[in-house]
Amino acid sequence: MEPAEPPSPPCPTRLPWDFHPALTEERLRICARMLANARRDALAMASYELGDDPWSVGCRAFAFGRHRLERAASSGDYPWLEVLDDSAHFVFVIGGNGNGVPVRFYRGAAEEPTERTLKRQEVEVQQLSLALGEAAAEGLAFRLAVETDGTGRVDRVVFLALRGEDRVECFWPVPLELPAAVAAGSGVQLRLIADDCYTGPDEAASRPSPLPPALPRRKPAATSQQRPQTTLF
């Protein structure tokens, strides 16, 4: 008789809104699309001939994603979105009235979060305890994992609820409604949505910048040898 195989760990069954009502599907889709569009723009602006590589593109994609979320939060169009920490440890909050849920994002495999990804910031811990209570927030971290393919384009964005170093309580791929595949040979990823009223680098570059207004012509100073001229009408 063959020995029975150990049972596989159960798949996470909780959904984001099971943790907190502020984590709605619509809000997570908006945030995930912003991050996906930010990486699209970083890829579109990459110049590999001048030395760009996956590392520099990744840094730009992170900065673009952070900026998109900051701009959306300050626009007033998303009252449920706030920025808690605008440093390199960027933390944003989903939910208003000071009772929102802190979330961070990273690029990498959702199944393999790194130690750096799992590390929680002090302001994040405090905000999570305020939103969920100390007992429910113990060891918990919410993350958006931006997964990419070999070319750097976004494959999917996954919402994660991680407890400690090895416990996944929520694994929810965020629907992005991706458009048709990019044409073969094209190095630019199509926009997923037209979010936060930003058209992207391609469209912005195609429009000529307005010329600055002309400066008024300076009149020469009159000298003793120069008589003022009379203007005839």
Rank of each mutant, 00 (worst) to 15 (best):
R14K: 14
S56H: 09
C31T: 14
I94G: 00
N97A: 12
C59H: 08
V91S: 00
W80R: 07
G100P: 07
A46E: 11
F92N: 03
R71K: 15
V57S: 06
L69H: 10
N99M: 09
P79G: 02
L28A: 05
A72I: 02
T114G: 12
D53A: 14
L23E: 06
F64A: 15
A36D: 01
Y106Q: 00
E26P: 00
A42M: 10
L23F: 05
L43A: 14
M34G: 15
G76Y: 05
R60Q: 15
F92T: 02
S74K: 13
F19H: 07
R68K: 08
F62P: 00
L35R: 06
Y48S: 04
G108A: 05
D86A: 15
N37L: 00
V103H: 03
L23G: 06
N37T: 12
A73H: 06
D86T: 10
L50W: 11
A32H: 00
W17H: 11
Y106L: 02
D52L: 11
M34C: 12
A46W: 04
G95V: 05
Y48R: 14
L23C: 03
A88R: 12
G51N: 10
A22H: 15
A109K: 09
A22V: 07
G95Q: 07
V93P: 07
M45V: 13
G95R: 08
G65Y: 06
L35Q: 08
L69P: 03
M45H: 01
R104W: 00
L84D: 06
W80L: 02
V57D: 04
V101P: 08
F90P: 13
M34F: 10
W17C: 10
V103G: 01
N97T: 08
L81Y: 06
G65Q: 12
L28N: 04
Y78C: 11
A46V: 04
R14V: 02
A38C: 10
V83F: 04
N37I: 06
L84A: 08
A46D: 07
F19W: 14
S47F: 02
R39I: 04
D86W: 00
F105L: 03
G96I: 02
A42D: 10
D53C: 15
